[in-house]
Design a protein around this nucleic acid. Structure first.
Lengths: 209, 209
DNA sequence: CCATTACTGCGACAACCGTTGCATTAGGAT
DNA sequence: ATCCTAATGCAACGGTTGTCGCAGTAATGG
């Protein structure tokens, strides 16, 4: 008696691939406003009701898209200095937030309408920040920052201003912003601003919480 | 506070007051999800079509609510130190973001669906940051930070992590967060991290290439 | 007091959203 | 090969959203 395991390969998997592909394509081609369940269903050749049953709404679709985008091989650049690494990171954040079509903005917007999309986006960022931990490790190894530096707090301090100005404040894009925030944060870190209670050089996966 | 300059007092103004009052009440009583044009219309006793014609959608309603909320007498607290002032400010930000009903979160969510709501919210925050400039002025006067410190960048560096973690990352509320971000920013400011309103490329710290 | 103008109430309408009951089909198991 | 089950296709539905034309009414200006 096998437990009611899902059927891994077959029609279900094919349908899922069709729908997610259509959702991705519509998102980059026509933007978030054109992304309705009905549009995705029509584009993918799958019936409306099926999409509603399996994904419930657009947020569920985007959550699945996000989850399926977690397994890439992205890594932060290595520029040789903490300020340089953080600047490069912030440039990527900025590029993602001002790109057109506004894919990242669309996902953020969706996260306010759908709980699944919100948690999926949180997981995505969690993964990204975890991968960035190596940036702080390198800075510690170079002696740029104290050994007890809290990588998470440092990374958030560096990137948060970029998100804040482009996403929340909706101020016009400023090419100097990534570098400014990066250098200010590096300076603060060197001064010991992020000395935290977390054990130094901790290599345990950040997935737990 | 001016709606249509054509006929300031009369039925039009009365209708507007009824609708905005109903919108405010519904927002605090039943939350953002219950705030539809139809609900507001029914509650206010004004016809659906009238609300659609004058405000277009929920975002337009919230934009008007926000605009009418700009004239309060809010001022940042004076605690005697920069870190204290920033902590107090961040505590207010945190309180606004975790309050229930989630009024601030509702306005942020609305800003992703409606351009008028987005600009209105931007104006609101712009006003708030301008009022907070005095915090930096006091710090300069006390000699805590250099005279050329850019108040805007400092304030954003201090508050952005709070918004980032509670709004974008959706991490659980952390009572220590406001103080941590405030102290780190005060430390960075004392080290001269926010010197200069528009740092040129020539002012990059040594060691970066 | 009357004429003009602007706004509102009203009802109808199409479009869209999401759900449901039922028949059919495809996968996997025996 | 045949049965069993889960998933899909299909059609219809009720509810919501947003718009429109028309008529009535309140405010303004003479």
């Amino acid at each position: 008696m096998t437990a009611t395991a899902r059927r891994p390969g077959g029609r279900a998997a094919r349908i899922r691939a069709q729908v997610l592909t259509a959702a991705r394509a519509l998102l980059v081609e026509r933007g978030y406003d054109a992304l309705t369940v009905d549009t995705v269903a029509e584009r993918s050749g799958v019936h409306r009701a099926t999409v509603y049953r399996r994904w419930r709404d657009v947020g569920g679709l985007l959550a699945d898209v996000l989850a399926s985008a977690l397994d890439d091989d992205w890594r932060p650049r290595d520029t040789g200095t903490l300020a340089g690494d953080l600047t490069a990171l912030n440039e990527e954040v900025r590029a993602a937030l001002v790109e057109d079509p506004p894919l990242t903005m669309a996902l953020i917007a969706a996260s306010f309408r759908s709980a699944p999309a919100a948690t999926a986006l949180g997981r995505f960022w969690e993964d990204r920040y975890a991968r960035c931990g190596v940036v702080v490790d390198r800075a510690v190894a170079r002696g740029e920052v104290p050994a007890g530096t809290d990588a998470r707090r440092l990374l958030i301090a560096a990137t948060a201003p970029v998100y804040h100005r482009l996403v929340l404040l909706r101020q016009p894009d400023d090419p100097g912003l990534p570098g400014d925030a990066a250098r200010a944060t590096a300076l603060a870190a060197a001064a010991g601003a992020f000395d935290g209670p977390a054990p130094a050089a901790a290599e345990r996966p950040v997935g737990e919480r």
